[in-house]
Design a protein around this nucleic acid. Structure first.
Ligand SMILES: [Zn+2]
Ligand SMILES: [Zn+2]
Ligand SMILES: [Zn+2]
Ligand SMILES: [Zn+2]
Lengths: 135, 135
DNA sequence: TATAAAGTTGTTATATTATAACAATGCGTA
DNA sequence: TACGCATTGTTATAATATAACAACTTTATA
């Protein structure tokens, strides 16, 4: 039988927990390092857990950084729609949850006749704090 | 003095040419392989050229694929705004040039007070052809 | 012109990110 | 029990990207 959709294996729980605790996106190998004391020893174990967690919508990959963050919404699982704001200076990453934006993008279609079932959007700029500090 | 904005060095021209000729996104190491007969021998030479071409807006990186495509617009240089449609089956990538979309995203701002000066959007789905072939 | 400063290119080595391949284990079912 | 199948562990390696420094070119200016 295939794994139930809401069941997390031990490794998946361990990886999810450390990503949820983190204040910033985590790299796969920094996750690996952190979980070695818990018995996860090799990259494939981390990458498998990451893949599964992504499919479940529990975490997202920040493609421009090859890093992973916990999902802050509840509906990413089904929507396959993600948007992030990323500070170019301090690297802070925030998941954008904006119904208007997601509606606009979910309904977007162009003249190519292609219909989209998934999108990922990354905004870059300076966060409030960094802007204030005139960096 | 810094390099003039519209001047391409020899390596940059070679790399740009091969990306422009390609019908699909190219990976850095496949570029390296193709240009070795032209005297480019090592990864840093390719990556430097890619970096410069990206800054000039001549090419874009498809972050979800770690691959590079030539820009099909004329205004990406200044806009820092990119959107792509990507077929999950045949991996075809097309740069979306849709004034309404780019205007909408350029003007987007949320309650965090962060103002964005750059974005990258990747849509995924099945292209016309793959949809027709019921893949 | 000389000479320094700055930028660019070439080269070697290495860091970082990710997956292939297969063995071992656990688990439900006949 | 014994089989089939999913998951986990393990080793090795592939793929992507950058650090560090040497060599060479161009530009600035004395
Ligand atoms: Zn989410
Ligand atoms: Zn910041
Ligand atoms: Zn473009
Ligand atoms: Zn297709």
């Amino acid at each position: 039988m295939t794994q139930k959709i809401d069941f997390l294996s031990k490794n998946q729980q361990i990886v999810l927990e450390i990503i949820e605790k983190a204040k910033e996106p985590l790299k796969a190998y920094s996750i690996l390092f952190s979980v070695q004391k818990k018995g996860i020893k090799a990259p494939p174990q981390v990458y498998r857990a990451l893949d599964r967690l992504i499919k479940l919508g529990k975490i997202h990959k920040i493609e421009s950084k090859n890093a992973f963050v916990a999902c802050k919404n509840d509906n990413c699982t089904i929507s396959n729609a993600t948007a992030f704001s990323i500070c170019d200076n301090c690297e802070m990453v925030t998941e954008i949850s904006n119904p208007k934006l997601s509606k606009y993008l979910a309904n977007f279609h162009d003249e190519t006749g292609m219909r989209y079932n998934k999108y990922n959007l990354e905004f870059f700029g300076l966060c409030k704090k960094c802007k204030k500090n005139k960096i």
